[in-house]
Simulated scan of single mutants.
Amino acid sequence: MSKEKEYTSTCSLAMVQKIIGGKWKLVILWYLSRGPKRFGEIKRTFPDITQAMLTKQLRELEEDGFIHREIYKEVPPRVEYSLTSVGGDFVPILHSIYDWGEIHLK
């Protein structure tokens, strides 16, 4: 007999919700799953997000280990964002969410 999982504020579900709960985080992760992107590319892809909010969401995803921020020492400086192995492990979940939306939200 399997033990029923209970919700607590520190359970895995609550912790994942805290990480991906930002309005733009899922679509940012989806976009980065296609390869490394520069800040400007991300901003152009999501014109409705403010620069401040994009910066905040990227920093949070970096702090949570989902993305990596690479700074290239060039003039002008170039910064690229890419998924970490943790972020890459999350991609199949993004595909499942996308597929669910295709079936149930059309």
Rank of each mutant, 00 (worst) to 15 (best):
S2G: 14
K3H: 08
K5L: 14
K5W: 12
E6S: 09
Y7G: 01
T8K: 06
T8C: 15
S9C: 09
T10Q: 13
A14P: 04
A14M: 09
M15E: 14
Q17S: 13
Q17N: 15
Q17P: 04
Q17I: 14
K18C: 06
I19R: 02
G22L: 12
W24Q: 06
K25A: 08
K25Y: 00
L26S: 03
L26T: 07
L26A: 01
L26H: 02
L26N: 02
V27N: 07
L29F: 00
L29G: 01
W30T: 13
W30K: 08
L32I: 00
S33K: 00
S33E: 03
R38W: 02
F39A: 03
I42R: 01
R44I: 02
R44A: 13
T45V: 00
F46L: 14
P47E: 09
P47S: 11
D48R: 10
D48W: 05
I49S: 11
I49A: 11
T50E: 10
Q51H: 07
M53F: 06
M53I: 12
M53K: 09
M53E: 15
T55Q: 08
Q57L: 00
R59V: 00
E60N: 10
L61D: 00
E62K: 10
E62R: 07
E63Y: 05
E63I: 04
G65V: 12
G65F: 06
F66W: 00
I67K: 03
E70S: 15
E70D: 15
Y72C: 06
K73N: 14
E74W: 02
V75R: 10
V75D: 13
P76Y: 11
P76M: 10
P77H: 05
R78D: 14
E80F: 15
E80S: 11
E80V: 10
L83W: 05
L83D: 10
S85F: 10
G88Q: 13
D89E: 15
F90R: 00
F90W: 02
P92L: 05
I93N: 00
S96H: 05
Y98T: 02
Y98F: 08
D99K: 08
W100N: 07
G101E: 07
E102C: 11
E102I: 04
I103S: 03
H104E: 12
H104I: 03
L105F: 12
